[in-house]
Design a binder for these strands. Structure first.
Length: 520
RNA sequence: GGCCCCGUCGUCUAGCGGUCCAGGACUCCGGCCUUUCACGCCGGCAACACGGGUUCGAGUCCCGUCGGGGUCACCA
């Protein structure tokens, strides 16, 4: 049997982090078995702007390297892959269900149903519809319609027995048929509902394994009933635990951002992203630019493999120590059996750790290639950048080393690109290292004199120069170096002082010291 | 409330009856390195929800309790 899995996103305009994890597991399972991963668009509801809402989603999948074998833009033998274009399949299924007595036309109004539901709930009983408005004959249909009632199609669920399901993640799960409702599968206007559409499509597209989030577990009995009634083979099911909020067991939701922003770790990541976005001039709205949305990570310069690696370990593990997985390795060792049954909460800090590690391992040239576009978008370098600018940036990136954890962090070193007389100073650092340090100005002035009288240009020579100066003054290097850093970079912290000086060059260092001195 | 699922450090997890006074990773806290920051290195805090069984022996099996969550739509 060919393994075929699918992921069926709604065209909402963004890719949710939990959804991507589900998609990843589907992708891995299909690909590791030489099968196909299908993308199907769940657009039964929204007709408008599908194009615009779909683009970011497809883009996200490609960015993460989760290529689909069939679906939008790539086609496939079992298309169309948009549910809005599959109405005839659904209609045929409804007819078949009606013919076989597995479904019926029902003329109850929503209020009448709700009233029955309320009674059941009050009694602490599962709701079972009385079928009072079920049309048994054509005459019933005429009568109900004459009363002005609108008919829907309901499943005629079994009222006894049990369904035993063998879930690939959860094991044996049992449901009483009697507790199941007569779910609506078709509306009066002829449109169909989710439960019908998924079953019809999964069957038509020969999906062998339905790997989805656990909130669908309770949908499974009604879907199985449809499969059975239509005489279709039932696929294997695997229900994944959902992804929970940072520090809680609640399901992660894109609608609760206000609450997450108060959570320390989440806020830290979100703020960091915001900072980069501001520098890039990205206009963002909270819903679409947050650590819950995949696009966020691409924008701020995450490595897709880091995100994927983290997501893989969110609910799955190989053993007690392995954490780093290449794509090939995951394909080799992934298995549904090792998926955890309890929900896993999203931990921004751990994700950050994966990203930092991946960035550390990236060769310098690749970092440069990744970061130049950020400098361009922030308006710091021309497009295309002259060779000299690229090598200047390369020196900065090299010197910054693992202080740059994501590509967008390069913007923290914007001061290397600002004209010497326009440097802005960190106020606190300036006050502490220059204003409050009475000897700073004098030392800087003297060192400035020495600097302009020499021709040094490499880090080692700058170091010798400063150390010689320090010796001759009979001071500690700490007494000048902090002031020097603030004067030259505007900040109290940064990477190696001498490398910084070498990158800027003697003239610019001198000019910057001069500017700082004038501010005093 | 009905149904279903879940329950090991703050978080992600290892553990499939003895080798677990519970291991790894992230975070956090010390220390070292050091011109700052970061990296790195060393060390530390920290968990089997509870109660009954079964067993020579239980984090591991069974039952119950408690707790958490999902779902109960003419949404997906």
């Amino acid at each position: 049997m060919t393994i075929r899995t699918r992921f069926a996103p709604s065209p909402t305009g963004y890719l949710h982090i939990g959804g991507v994890r589900t998609a990843l597991f589907n992708w891995l399972y299909a690909r590791q078995h030489g099968g196909q991963f299908i993308l199907r668009i769940d657009d039964t509801d929204r007709e408008r702007n599908i194009e615009a809402a779909l683009t970011p989603i497809l883009h996200g999948f490609r960015w993460l390297g989760l290529e689909w074998d069939e679906g939008p833009e790539v086609g496939g033998r079992y298309g169309p892959y948009f549910q809005s274009q599959r109405a005839e399949w659904y209609q045929a299924a409804i007819e078949a269900l009606l013919d076989r007595g597995a479904a019926y036309r029902d003329y109850a109004s929503p209020d009448e149903i709700q009233a029955e539901r309320d009674v059941a709930r009050q009694d602490g009983q599962p709701f079972v519809y009385s079928r009072r408005f079920m049309a048994k004959t054509d005459a019933d249909v005429k009568r109900f319609e004459a009363e002005g009632r609108l008919g829907v199609i309901r499943l005629k669920m079994p009222r006894e027995g049990k369904l035993v399901l063998d879930d690939l993640v959860r094991g044996r799960v049992e449901f009483d048929w009697a507790a199941e409702q007569d779910h609506v599968i078709g509306r009066a206007d002829g449109s169909v509902l989710y439960n019908l559409a998924t079953v019809v499509d999964d069957h038509a597209m020969k999906i062998s394994h339905v790997i989805r989030a656990e909130e669908h577990l309770s949908n499974t009995p009604r879907q199985v009933f449809i499969y059975q009634s239509l005489g279709h083979d039932i696929p294997k099911f695997a229900h994944l635990p959902y992804v929970a909020e940072p520090g809680s067991k609640n399901k992660l939701s894109k609608r609760k951002l206000d609450i997450y922003r108060k959570q320390r770790d989440f806020a830290k990541l979100a703020d960091r992203g915001q900072r980069i976005a501001e520098r890039l001039g990205i206009s963002m709205n909270g819903e679409n630019f947050s650590p819950v949305i995949v696009d966020f990570y691409e924008q701020i310069g995450f490595l897709p493999e880091a995100l994927v690696n983290y997501l893989l370990l969110l609910g799955w593990s190989l053993d007690d120590k392995t954490e780093e997985f290449t794509r090939d390795r995951m394909l080799e060792v992934f298995s549904l059996e090792r998926i955890n049954r309890a929900p896993a909460s999203f931990d921004p800090q751990k994700l950050m750790a994966f990203q930092a590690r991946a960035m550390q391992q990236l060769p310098l040239e690749q970092k440069v290639a990744l970061m130049i576009p950020y400098l361009q978008r922030a308006g710091m370098v021309a497009d295309p950048p002259p060779d000299a600018v690229v090598s200047y940036a390369r020196q900065i990136i090299d010197a910054a080393g693992d202080r740059i954890e994501m590509a967008g962090d390069i913007l923290e070193y914007a001061d290397f690109f600002t004209p010497d007389d326009q440097l802005t100073y960190d106020e606190k650092a300036f006050a502490k290292r220059l204003h409050k340090n009475s000897e700073a100005a004098g030392l800087l002035y003297k060192f400035h004199q020495i600097l302009i009288a020499t021709e040094v240009c490499d880090a080692g020579s700058f170091e010798t120069l400063l150390k010689t100066f320090v010796d001759s003054e009979g001071i500690n290097i700490g007494q000048i170096i902090h002031a020097l850093r603030v004067a030259i970079t505007g900040k109290g912290v940064g990477f190696g002082m001498f490398e910084t000086m070498a990158i800027l060059g003697r003239d610019r260092c001198a000019a910057r010291i001069d500017c700082a001195l004038r501010k005093l």
